[in-house]
């Protein structure tokens, strides 16, 4: 597993953090609302590709959250970043929120995306099967949707955070180093995904414009983003197929890195 190294890139919205690693042909990873720019899947992919994993404005140490208000801004930001990094037509892997952003880019600028991999994507609204609430629930509740196996270290951390409370009536010292990244991630996600809730009503009828061969990966135990969304992407994108990964929930890149990496490597190299 290759390690990713951090660098900063000046973009249209300010300085953003980018993690890179590996040799070979470039591949972009777009993280979810969890902000996992560095994760086991991206690291494993760096054994095969030259991985570029940018941190979206507002997440981590990336600036510019005040300049990104909607998916149009997000798409222009990605175009700008790609230009500065010399990325022309690249394979993009996006998890959840990242998958949605990748699809938005691919509908507007199909030529910039050579292969598209959507892992548990959000971005579409399916009547009667909405994405579950992420903004008003405790970390422990979210962990149940994010991981099939609650013993995963991040699931454990989320349960721990929920149990954290001070003595009644006392001022408390909150572990800011744990709370702050989550706070920033959720705030940045809300800018684009609060209303309409984690979808773009116009995206579905634009999906026919995507020219890249597309792989949609669904975690069989994902209870956050219904499979119907993955199915709708698969149905609307001209060259797309859907695979299930057993034993994984929403944050598949963290929970099932071997399976996801194999699927992506095989698909992108074919």
């Amino acid at each position: 597993m290759s390690s990713l190294s951090e660098e900063y890139v000046e973009t249209d919205v300010g300085k953003v953090q980018v993690f890179r690693g590996g040799d070979g042909a470039p591949l972009v990873y777009m993280h979810s609302a969890a902000g996992e720019a560095v994760n086991p899947t991206a690291e494993k992919l760096a054994d095969w590709f030259s991985v570029v994993s940018p941190v979206f404005p507002g997440f981590g140490e990336s600036e510019g959250v005040d300049k990104v208000d909607d998916m149009e801004d997000a798409t222009f930001h990605h175009l700008d970043l790609f230009d500065r990094l010399g990325l022309d037509a690249v394979p993009i892997v996006g998890l959840s929120f990242g998958g949605w952003m990748a699809a938005e880019l691919a509908t507007r600028y199909p030529g910039r995306v050579s292969r598209l991999v959507l892992v548990n994507p959000v971005g579409l609204y399916i009547e009667g099967q909405p994405v579950k609430e992420i903004f008003g629930r405790t970390p422990a509740e979210l962990a149940e949707d994010m991981f099939a196996d609650q013993s995963h270290p991040m699931a454990q951390m989320m349960h721990m955070l929920s149990e954290f409370r001070g003595d009644v009536g006392q001022q408390i010292e909150v572990p800011m180093e744990l709370v702050l990244p989550i706070w920033k991630s959720m705030s940045a996600t809300a800018k684009l995904g609060w209303d309409p809730y984690l979808h773009n009503p116009k995206l579905r009828r634009r999906l026919h414009r995507i020219t890249a061969p597309t792989l949609v990966i669904h975690g069989a135990q994902d209870t956050l983003a219904p499979k119907a969304i993955a199915e709708a992407y698969t149905a609307e994108i001209p060259d797309a197929r859907l695979v299930d990964v057993e034993g994984g929930a929403h944050l598949l890149a963290l929970e099932k890195p071997d399976e996801v990496t194999d699927l992506i490597r095989e698909f992108v190299s074919s």
Binding site: R165, G169, Q170, Q171, I172, E173, V174, V179, W183
Partner: peptide, 11 residues
Amino acid sequence: SLGNILKSAGT
């Protein structure tokens, strides 16, 4: 402001 608000939350 987050730090202040979290600090007072227990009270």
